[in-house]
């Protein structure tokens, strides 16, 4: 009985300790981002490994998600003679929800886990310690560029995902199923609002970018530098960022699209 209580207490205490450490860490990272102005090259390099290398999977996933969405909405809508709405249905689902969310989940799996593993390994091989002893702040040189690259790349990946998804939907709806191309676009144009839908979608992507990159770099920086600890940290990155993204998506949707 007491053992159980103790376990619960231990869990809660370590949870809040980690949460606290994570927030302090985030502030430090924000403070370190300024130093990137002096060394933009570091950011570009990380944009490549974080953004560009995630691009392929995002494009392929976007294409198929768009195609499947078009196919499924067609089957559902054709019974009501409303198959012309396929365009708007796909566009809205992608721009508002699936674009930001699926991109963030793919990002967590592809780039987030890689970031955690890389930083964790740098910690395990004393590279971070070594930098500190060379009077170089690893937060500025290692963490901040990776974090910022994630934050910037995510909205870009999100937009590309949406655009490719809509192209995929267009291919299925107009070219394969023979819907009218005009109503495909016109319905979308009539219902999708630049500010309310697209900007909010990008804002969502941005928030997810902050969360997913934060979790990824923190897990790497905070991991126990053993092979086991590193494996656990990588898993935690994927699980925690996926859960955080889904939860935040609900919160953001409730705030943004409540009217």
């Amino acid at each position: 009985m007491f053992a159980l209580l103790q376990k619960l207490g231990h869990f809660i205490i370590t949870f809040f300790q980690r949460l606290g450490r994570g927030h302090v860490f985030l502030l430090q990272v924000f403070a370190s981002c300024g130093s990137l102005l002096v060394r933009p090259g570091l950011l570009v390099k990380q944009m490549y490994s974080v953004g560009v290398q995630t691009l392929i999977i995002v494009v392929v996933a976007g294409l198929f998600v768009g195609m499947v969405l078009a196919l499924q909405s067609y089957y559902a809508l054709v019974d009501f003679g409303a198959e012309d709405s396929v365009g708007v249905m796909v566009a809205l689902s992608l721009v508002r929800e699936l674009g930001p969310v699926v991109t963030a989940l793919l990002f967590a799996g592809r780039a987030g886990s890689a970031l955690t593993a890389e930083i964790g390994l740098m910690k395990a091989t004393e590279q971070l310690s070594g930098m500190e002893m060379m009077a170089v702040n690893p937060l500025q040189r290692v963490i901040a560029p990776r974090f910022l690259a994630g934050v910037i790349s995510m909205p870009m990946l999100g937009i590309i995902f949406c655009a490719v998804g809509i192209i995929g939907a267009y291919f299925v709806a107009v070219i394969l199923l023979g819907l009218d191309y005009g109503s495909f676009w016109s319905q979308a144009q009539a219902k999708v609002d630049l500010y309310h839908d697209i900007y909010n979608g990008i804002l969502k992507s941005f928030v997810f970018g902050v969360i997913a990159s934060w979790i990824a770099v923190f897990e790497g920086y905070d991991c126990i530098p053993t092979s086991e600890g590193l494996g656990q940290a990588t898993t935690r990155t994927v699980v925690h960022s996926s859960l955080a993204v889904l939860f935040l998506d609900f919160v953001l949707t409730a705030i943004m699209f409540s009217k």
């Binding site: 390099k45 560009v52 721009v95 590309i160 655009a163 999708v192 630049l194 697209i198």
Partner: peptide
């Protein structure tokens, strides 16, 4: 690296304009 990152950014901008111009009511 720099060229691919540049392409990535250009792709994102193009995608944004595609969304803004042909999907939304812009």
């Amino acid at each position: 690296v720099e060229i691919t990152v540049g392409l990535f950014a250009a792709g994102a901008i193009a995608a944004f304009f595609m969304l803004a111009m042909s999907v939304s009511n812009m």
